[in-house]
Design a protein around this nucleic acid. Structure first.
Lengths: 147, 147
DNA sequence: TATTGTTATACTCTATAACTATA
DNA sequence: TATAGTTATAGAGTATAACAATA
């Protein structure tokens, strides 16, 4: 007998805090980003193609929780920047499959570490416990994002 | 004698991961947000005014790492929605100080919990350890965002 | 009929530039 | 001269709508 459907009410403040924290950090990231740096979405696509190559526009759009039209624009920009290349799907002539170019792989490796320097400094200034907390939470945040 | 200025190089992957995680979660939040829900910035301003009332446009802009013109628009929208009200500064006739209305306080309390329900569910599905990791990391993320 | 991708258009959020009023 | 706020304009990022090609 469930009097209230109310599901784990004590998690509501945590969710609210998480939304605020993510909002503040993403604004801070944007305000610090260099003029021609990759956007968060572009970097996310490169990371995904490094983990699994040969994904289509629709695959990537689903994975990034974004419309195919929006992903299309991101991929056009990445291709023009020489970071990804596209090839026709072997059997389905509607699709194109994307993979990293050599330049895209290099970009993933040395990254645009420059535009993250402020964040590296901020993490370095944390005490050991907080740094541990932050690093351990990263896979959890992705779990929530992909849930 | 410092051969290399290189500051804690092993933190670079953590920073890269944090940027990707924040990017994915903020896109997920946007894609789940209800049509007329508050934006992350609007919610952040309400939270800040709850903690400390009587802040000006410039105060809030600095706190949220945003230009005063951008904050001005956010405050106009919040005022039109009846969530904040502004009053002239007692001595400086250039400034206006903002505070939550009753409706704004209510919005903070019950929040737009509706638009967070997917996130609450996602957190509820985490195992106990991951949930603990997530919750403990939230103040640390804000430290980084405000650093 | 459903899906992939494209093109055109519009909306949200934030930034830059130029201005007025006050300190 | 510096700061607070306003107005106008522009850019990035993503969405919706309408379409063609293929499955």
């Amino acid at each position: 007998m469930r009097d209230m459907p109310d599901p784990v009410p004590e998690l509501e403040p945590a969710a609210a805090e998480l939304m605020l924290a993510v909002g503040q950090l993403s604004r801070r990231i944007r305000s610090e980003s260099a003029p021609h740096a990759l956007s968060l979405s572009q970097a996310s696509v490169l990371a995904r193609l490094e983990r699994k190559t040969g994904l289509s526009t629709a695959d990537l759009a689903r994975a990034e929780a974004m419309k195919p039209q929006s992903m299309g624009k991101i991929l056009v920009d990445l291709e023009r920047a020489g970071l990804v290349e596209r090839h026709p799907h072997p059997s389905d002539r509607r699709q194109f499959l994307y993979r990293l170019t050599r330049r895209g792989t290099q970009m993933r490796q040395r990254g645009s570490a420059l535009s993250r320097s402020w964040m590296i400094d901020a993490i370095a200034r944390l005490d050991v416990c907080d740094r541990k907390r932050l690093i351990e939470s990263l896979p959890v945040i992705r779990l929530v994002a992909e849930s």
